[in-house]
Design a protein around this nucleic acid. Structure first.
Length: 316
DNA sequence: TACACGTGGGA
DNA sequence: TTCCCAAGTGT
């Protein structure tokens, strides 16, 4: 690298990490006394899920299951129930499975290498890197949606990163990473936070950006994205039905009769149900019988629920 | 590679 | 009101 480039990179590092020290949110999993297990749980919960929704659930989990062994000792259904409404409940199942692997194969301690972390259920490339960096202080190339967006704007000059992670993006992230462990950890956390608080997907707060003067996207006149992000369908999907069924199972004490879950819309005029209960909400979807059965079978197939007699319940 | 997979709050 | 999207993973 040319001396000039090295100097420029060093300035980006100090500007962004300095901004972080002044503006970072005080999150409990960033505290020095937070265990690797606490960091792992936070990272899985934060997958596709905003910080504000994770906070209370994470606190509950740490209180109830301060170590992997405590979680592994319980039925997976308890993890799913305690997951609440965070969404993507299979993450709870995988976290429970990860705790089991940690106990059986790692002596109850969260593994301390990227490769071993990556082998855990529910831990992909991002989460393995994040835990190695943030919990273990290791030099890792952490690439999440925030970091990708900051890189896309600051360096590449695009409004948004490509739709899928490219080799070029990875090379760029590697080239920007500070050489030392501590510096790289601070950089990863800082760029991620910058993306979350300032360099946001919609309405970025460029006035508050510590590297506004260096931003290739701003310099280019803030051009529009190269593509139109395609939104996820929701209304009428299997996911909507599965979600409604899971809500019923979470609040139920015991098994819920299949006929109740598979029933068509009830006669609301009869006054037996209001849309305030999960079961009423499920019925209110008026999903076709075929879709209800497909959703139920999917939950069982995925291990989120199990048949018990003539009913369905969270895994015991 | 593309798609399935939950949820709720802000614009 | 509708749409967007938030610290991705597994198949």
């Amino acid at each position: 690298m040319e001396p000039e480039q090295a100097e420029h990179l060093s300035q980006l590092h100090s500007r962004i990490t300095s901004w972080f020290t002044r503006n970072a949110r005080p999150l409990p999993w960033r505290e020095p006394d937070c265990s690797p297990w606490g960091v792992l749980v936070s990272e899985v919960m934060l997958q596709q899920t905003p910080v504000v929704r994770v906070l209370p659930v994470w606190q509950e989990w740490m209180q109830r299951w301060p170590e992997p062994a405590a979680l592994a000792a319980e039925p997976s259904g308890e993890a799913v129930r305690a997951w609440g409404r965070l969404g993507y409940p299979r993450r709870a199942l995988r976290l429970h499975a990860a705790a089991t692997v940690i106990v059986t194969e790692h002596g109850g301690l969260v593994p301390d290498t990227h490769a071993a972390l990556l082998a855990l259920p529910g831990v992909g490339d991002y989460t393995a890197a994040a835990v190695a960096a943030f919990a273990l202080g290791q030099r890792e190339t952490v690439v999440d949606t925030n970091i990708r967006r900051v890189h896309a704007r600051l360096v590449t000059g695009n409004a948004l990163p490509s739709q899928s992670l490219t080799a070029a993006e990875m090379r760029l992230a590697v080239s920007l990473l500070p050489d030392d462990d501590a510096g790289s950890v601070a950089w990863n956390a800082s760029v991620m936070e910058l993306g979350a608080l300032v360099c946001t997907a919609r309405n970025p707060r460029c006035e508050d950006c510590p590297v506004l003067a260096d931003c290739a996207w701003v310099r280019a006149g803030r051009p529009e994205p190269h593509y139109v992000p395609k939104g996820q369908a929701w209304h009428g999907t299997d996911r909507q039905v599965r979600g409604a069924m899971m809500a019923v199972l979470r609040e139920a004490e015991g098994p819920v009769l299949r006929e109740l879950l598979l029933a068509g819309p009830v006669d609301l005029a009869a006054g037996q149900e209001t849309v305030t209960t999960p079961l009423a909400a499920l019925h209110a979807l008026s999903a076709p019988q075929e879709q209800l059965e497909r959703a139920l079978n999917g939950l069982v197939r995925d291990g989120l629920a199990e048949l018990s007699g003539d009913g369905l319940r969270l895994p015991a």
